[in-house]
Design a protein around this nucleic acid. Sequence first.
DNA 1: GCCATACGCAACCAAAAGTTGCGCGTCTAC
DNA 2: GTAGACGCGCAACTTTTGGTTGCGTATGGC
Lengths: 114, 114
Amino acid sequence: MSAAVDDDLWSAIGDPTRRRMIDLLLAEGQGTATTLSAHLPVTRQAVTKHLAVLDRAGLVRSAPAGREKRYHVDEAQLARAVAQLRAVGALWDARLERIKSLAEAIQRAKNAKK
Amino acid sequence: MSAAVDDDLWSAIGDPTRRRMIDLLLAEGQGTATTLSAHLPVTRQAVTKHLAVLDRAGLVRSAPAGREKRYHVDEAQLARAVAQLRAVGALWDARLERIKSLAEAIQRAKNAKK
DNA sequence: GCCATACGCAACCAAAAGTTGCGCGTCTAC
DNA sequence: GTAGACGCGCAACTTTTGGTTGCGTATGGC
């Protein structure tokens, strides 16, 4: 009935800051907590916490490179997330459509009665 | 650059409980804090707070009916929200696609070198 | 070797999500 | 009509989450 939605995945991309982080990582290909925080209105530490959330959700993975820790988007997992966005969108669209055609049916019935 | 996303609208539908509430309201056509909480793992009061958030975001509207207060989804606003889901999905998809074709190009270059 | 820089950890703060408890209005059944 | 049940709103409190500052440690460049 209700779309099979992974709440962890969804709430990971639900946060505006995290969504922008994913945007940035996709645009640049990779990034560290420091480089990301430079483009965001929050501190490096806040970014670090968000990265931990994204990591737990599997949306990003990290690779240590010397003294820095580079993160990149896990494409497969992001694809899954996008699929879920679509699924919910499609579900709601379908419901809205049904309501609309229902309303039209009622309208037709009314007109017929007249 | 980054999709024109309404953070208030998005964070309204970002919460799993609120998303399920919208699902329920769409399925039943309407509902009260009490009826919704019956189908959710939280108390009526928690549902009331979520309804207030959804109301502020314009996603639902309410109509008093005797001793109960019935809520229903604002279809136009939900349609807007769905559009935003699609927008973000499309953006990320495009980026993933670019990455994929980039990877393929690199692969081709490698093979050519061999 | 020394200093910049990048990171991790810890304490702390504020807002959001959720809870319990309570009082008030409204419907219903006797 | 009034008694009890039902639905709601308000208030106090707790927990989780997003954010901060401060500090110690490790690594890379000169």
